[in-house]
């Protein structure tokens, strides 16, 4: 059948990267870097999620259609976040419009 069989060494490598990412997140969180704290922690989390999706979930070797479907979920999530925050963050920008 189809189904790409990845070598075990690749899985161990991804595992190692995920563990290092976790350690890095905890380490960076100990220091007060201002807004950089959030940027670093979310960037590391996104890279970790991407590694899991691409390799553990086999999307790397899946059809284009699977790429589109998987990507669409995160794309709609981005729309949810950006439009909702655009509303909340812009309230009161025009004087007298907040309540």
């Amino acid at each position: 059948m189809s189904g790409h069989v990845a070598p075990k060494s690749l899985y161990y490598l991804i595992f190692l990267a995920l563990m290092i990412g976790t350690g890095l997140t905890v380490l960076v969180a100990r220091f007060d870097l201002g807004p950089l704290n959030n940027i670093v922690m979310l960037s590391v989390a996104c890279v970790k999620a991407l590694l899991v999706i691409l390799f553990f979930m086999h999307v790397r070797w899946s059809s284009r259609l699977t790429w589109v479907v998987a990507g669409s979920g995160f794309f709609w999530l981005l729309i949810l976040f950006s439009i909702t925050m655009a509303d909340y963050m812009s309230r009161g920008w025009v004087p007298g419009t907040l309540r």
Partner: peptide, 26 residues
């Protein structure tokens, strides 16, 4: 397996967002 990995991904985001945002005050 896809389901299991998805649940793992959710935790990858929950851990820093819930546990680590005030860690540097310790």
């Amino acid at each position: 397996g896809l389901y299991w990995h998805f649940v793992d991904i959710v935790w990858i985001f929950l851990f820093p967002l819930l546990y680590l945002i005030g860690y540097h005050y310790h």
